[in-house]
C-alpha cells in the first residue's frame, strides 16, 4: 500500500503540473483548452528534437548522475519552453483572441481548441510518425526505499522538478505585482479593467506561464514513459478531472486535485484492474461535480 501511495504521488505530481496551466487559462480567459494535452506533446517532442540535435553534434552525451537521461535533455528544457510559449501565444493571437473579442459563448472557444488539438496532433504525426520515441536508451536505475518501495531514480527527478516548477508559479502569483494582477483578473475581470489592468497583456503572461509548465510537463512525462503522438491527448482527461476537483482557476485546488487523483488511481489497482484507473478519475470527478459543483474547496484562493 505504501508503494502504491508513493506511485500515486509521482503520478499526481505530473497531473498537478499539467493541470496548473490549464486551470490558470480557464480562470483568466474562460477557455477550457482541449489542445492543452497536444501542446504537452509538442513540448515533449521539441525537447526530443534538441536532444537528438545535441547528440548528433556529439555534445552533452554524458549521463546526468544516476539518471537514465543525458545532459542534452536538461539543456533541451530551455528551447522547449521557449517554443512552447511562442506556440501558445501564436494560437491565442489567431484563434482565441478573435473569439474573445466577438464575445463568443465559451463553448465556441472550447470547440475551436478541439480544432487546434487536431492540427497540432496532425503535425506531430506528419513530422515524427506514429512510432514511440525515447529521450535515451539508457538503463533505468531502480532505487530501493524503506517499506519495500521500489522506485526508478528518474522518478525522484520528476517529482522534484515538478514541485519546484509548481512552487515558482505559486510564488509568482502570490508575491509579484503581475501575479497578483493575474489573480485579480481571474477573480473579477470587470473590476480588473476598471483598475487599469490591461487584460490582453495579462493574458499573454498567463499563456507564458501555461506554455512554460506545458513544456516542463511534456518532458517529465516523456522521461517517465515514452514519446508518442497521442500521449498528451490521453493525458488530458485526468487533467480535466483534476481542475474540476480543484475548482475554476484555483492553483492550489489543481495541485491537491491532481495529487488526490494520482493516489486514488494507483491505490485502486490494489482491488481493480489497472485499466480502470482512468475511470476512477472520472467517477471521482463526477461525484464531486454532483455534490460540490464548485470543486472540493469551493471558493478559490490562489
Amino acid at each position: 500500500m505504501a508503494e502504491l501511495i508513493v506511485y500515486g504521488i509521482i503520478l499526481g505530481s505530473i497531473i498537478a503540473l499539467g493541470s496548473i496551466g490549464l486551470t490558470l487559462i480557464w480562470g483568466i480567459t474562460d477557455l477550457f483548452n482541449c489542445a492543452h494535452g497536444d501542446q504537452i506533446t509538442v513540448g515533449a517532442y521539441t525537447a526530443f528534437v534538441f536532444t537528438s540535435l545535441f547528440s548528433n553534434m556529439g555534445i552533452l552525451q554524458g549521463k546526468v548522475g544516476p539518471f537514465s537521461f543525458c545532459w542534452g535533455v536538461l539543456l533541451a528544457f530551455i528551447p522547449a519552453v521557449i517554443i512552447s510559449v511562442v506556440l501558445a501565444l501564436i494560437i491565442d493571437r489567431w484563434v482565441y483572441k478573435p473569439l474573445r473579442h466577438s464575445g463568443a459563448h465559451f463553448i465556441t472557444s472550447f470547440i475551436a481548441s478541439i480544432g487546434v488539438a487536431w492540427v497540432l496532433r496532425g503535425f506531430i504525426y506528419i513530422i515524427w510518425g506514429a512510432d514511440f520515441h525515447f529521450y535515451s536508451s539508457g538503463l533505468r536505475t531502480v532505487a530501493f526505499l524503506p517499506l519495500g518501495i521500489k522506485l526508478r531514480i528518474d522518478e525522484i527527478f520528476i517529482v522534484v522538478i515538478a514541485w519546484m516548477a509548481v512552487a515558482l508559479v505559486y510564488l509568482f502569483l502570490a508575491k509579484t505585482k503581475k501575479g497578483k494582477a493575474l489573480r485579480a483578473l481571474a477573480d473579477n475581470p470587470g473590476l480588473a479593467r476598471i483598475s487599469g489592468i490591461d487584460t490582453e497583456y495579462m493574458i499573454k503572461w498567463a499563456w507564458g506561464i501555461a506554455g512554460t509548465l506545458i513544456a516542463i510537463a511534456g518532458i517529465l512525462y516523456g522521461i517517465e514513459t515514452q514519446l508518442r503522438p497521442e500521449m498528451g491527448w490521453i493525458f488530458l482527461l485526468p487533467l480535466f478531472a483534476a481542475i474540476i476537483l480543484g475548482g475554476k482557476g484555483s492553483i492550489t485546488g489543481a495541485l491537491i486535485g491532481g495529487l488526490l487523483l494520482g493516489i486514488a488511481q494507483q491505490v485502486s489497482t490494489a482491488w481493480l484492474l489497472p485499466t480502470y484507473k482512468p475511470a476512477i478519475a472520472f467517477i471521482i470527478m463526477i461525484a464531486v461535480l454532483i455534490f460540490r459543483p464548485k470543486g472540493i474547496f469551493g471558493r478559490r484562493h490562489i
Binding site: V95, P98, A104, I111, G115, W118, L120, G122, A130
Partner: peptide, 24 residues
C-alpha cells in the same frame, strides 16, 4: 505514405477553426 493520412487531422482542424472564427 505512412504519415500522409495524418494530414487530414490538420485539414479538419483548420476547417473547424476557420468556420468558428469566420462563420460562427
Amino acid at each position: 505514405e505512412t504519415r500522409a493520412p495524418y494530414i487530414r487531422y490538420v485539414l479538419i482542424g483548420l476547417l473547424l477553426i476557420f468556420i468558428i472564427i469566420k462563420r460562427p
